[in-house]
Simulated assay, not measured.
Amino acid sequence: MIKFSFVLFALPLLSYWNSCSKYDSPVKDNPGLKKASLTAGWSFTLGDRSVLSQSTFPPSDSGYYTDGAIPLIKLGNQYYGFWARYRNYRTVANSPLLENHLGQLNPLTPVFGGNQPNNGTSNGFNDGGMWFIGVRQLNDGRLAGFFHAETHWYPRTTQGWYAYKSIGVAYSSDSGRSWGAPYQILKHEVDKPATPSWSGLGDGAVIYNHLNNKYYCYYTPATGVTSICMAVSSDQNGYVGSWKKWYNGSFSEPGLGGKQTALSPLTMNPGSNPSVHWNTYLNKFIMIWHGWDGKLYISASSNAETWENPKLLLQDGPKAWYPAIIGVSSVEGGQQIRLYYAFDFRPDGRRTLASRTITFQL
Rank of each mutant, 00 (worst) to 15 (best):
A84M: 06
F285W: 15
G294D: 08
P58V: 14
R90H: 07
S242Y: 12
P26Y: 10
E308G: 04
W243K: 04
P107E: 00
P193K: 02
D174E: 06
T220N: 09
A320G: 04
T220I: 09
S19Y: 12
E189A: 03
A304V: 14
K34Y: 13
P155K: 08
S95F: 13
Q315N: 09
N94C: 02
E332V: 15
F360M: 03
L98N: 02
L312G: 05
S21N: 04
A354F: 15
L98S: 03
S43W: 10
W243G: 01
G271I: 13
N100E: 14
I325H: 01
N209F: 12
A84W: 13
K3E: 08
G41I: 06
I286H: 08
T45R: 03
E150N: 10
L186N: 01
V51T: 13
T158V: 15
P26H: 09
S301W: 12
V135A: 01
D29S: 07
Y297H: 09
Q361P: 00
R136D: 00
S264C: 03
N118G: 04
T267S: 06
N126W: 13
G333P: 11
T157P: 06
L72C: 14
K245G: 00
A163T: 15
Q260H: 09
K28F: 14
P323D: 00
H290R: 14
F82Q: 03
P182L: 07
V328G: 01
D203I: 11
S264K: 09
S37K: 00
S60Q: 08
N115W: 15
M268V: 12
W17L: 07
K245T: 04
L105F: 12
G32C: 10
G334E: 04
K284C: 04
P182S: 13
L14V: 15
L46S: 00
G145N: 01
N209P: 06
L105H: 07
L11W: 08
S53H: 04
N106I: 02
N309S: 08
G249D: 10
T226P: 01
L102A: 00
S275M: 06
S272A: 14
I228Q: 03
K22W: 09
N309F: 07
